Simulated scan of single mutants.
Amino acid sequence: MIIAEVVRSGFVESTHHGVVAVDGGPSIGDVDTPFFPRSSNKPLQTVGLLNAGLMPREEADLALISGSHDGEGFHVERVRAMLAAVDLGPEALRCPADLPLGETPRYDWLRGGGAAEPILMNCSGKHAGMLATCVLNGWPLDTYLDIDHPLQKALADAVSRLSGEPIAALGVDGCGAPIFAISPIGLARAFRRLVEAEPGSPERRVADAMRARPELVAGTGTEDTVLMNAVPGLLVKKGADGVAAAAMAGVGAVALKISDGASRARVPVLLAALRRLGLEVPAMPELVLGGGLPVGEVRAVG
């Protein structure tokens, strides 16, 4: 079994059990019980936007719509341009005001006297894509986050179709948008379908855009960006509460949920799962700090 253990000064401090689902291969833990994949759902929702008629200004916009951006300048300006392309401004966004997700962009923004704004929220790219789709269809804008809105019905249909299972439960994500519960194996299955779809299909367009511009999916130096840059052809999308999904055509797909929601266990378990698929992945140590100095690490064992 793959678990992540925290080793501090040579002693095991605690363990975080992982639930790992591998589409078409051996799985570990309870991979059939539905859960909320959080932002790992975003690429599936972007497929739903394309099916509903979204026409991005350029393919790179699909990467940002599918991402959880760090709030760097190039992220924010692209969101602004996406909105302007359909004659909207940042005031149309219904995601909550927030500071940049990335540590450096956040500090830079605060040092410059900035305050929280909806466009800085890490999901603003997804919300811009939702709004653009509504404009193109003539759908109401003020209620685009309502579960009975035609936009959200289209996104639920896409998640269900790609995962190969019905939506088990509905919730509200941190950005205010509906979130759809599926199983870990369903999430892995969906990611595999993205990378193995026919070129030019909505699924493949999303996967290709994310892999071509991984810095738009996350940010400079973040785990999704580093992994997609290091392993050509790999699709990766993390989610809150210890969630991640990844896939490569001809190799397979993996989805994971750290059962206690610890984010620091996510990368070690993801790397271990990708190695089980036979991929060579970079070393990305998850250090444990004490007094500002490394005193241990989170590592996968099993």
Rank of each mutant, 00 (worst) to 15 (best):
P282K: 09
R189V: 06
G261E: 07
C95M: 00
A60E: 12
G164C: 13
L120G: 00
I182L: 14
T104A: 13
E223G: 01
G239A: 13
E223S: 13
I28G: 03
L227A: 09
C134I: 03
A156Q: 10
L101Y: 13
Y107G: 05
D241E: 15
G129L: 04
M130E: 09
H75Q: 08
A169P: 01
G53V: 01
L235K: 00
L141H: 06
A169R: 15
H17E: 14
N137Y: 00
A207K: 08
N51W: 10
Q45V: 04
W139N: 07
A168H: 15
L287V: 12
D61P: 06
V231Q: 04
V31W: 02
L274R: 12
W109G: 01
M248T: 03
I2H: 10
L270H: 01
D260N: 14
T33Y: 02
P96Y: 06
A190T: 06
A52Y: 03
L216W: 04
F35G: 03
T104C: 01
P56E: 13
G176R: 07
G261W: 11
A158H: 06
K153L: 15
A249N: 11
H69M: 05
E58C: 11
Y107Q: 04
V12M: 14
D23N: 10
G174H: 12
V254D: 02
A158P: 11
V6T: 10
A169I: 03
E223W: 10
P199R: 04
V269C: 06
L194H: 05
H149D: 09
A262M: 06
G24W: 11
L50A: 09
L270K: 00
V86F: 12
G71D: 05
A63Q: 07
L145D: 02
A265F: 03
T143M: 02
S66M: 00
G89I: 12
Q45T: 01
P294T: 04
E91K: 06
E77C: 02
F11M: 13
G174A: 08
E203H: 05
E297N: 10
A240P: 03
P285Q: 08
L120S: 02
A218T: 11
A132S: 14
L99E: 09
K42C: 01
G252F: 09
G174Q: 13
L162C: 10
G164Q: 10
R57N: 03
G102K: 05
P105F: 10
T133H: 02
G53A: 05
E196A: 13
R78L: 08
A116M: 07
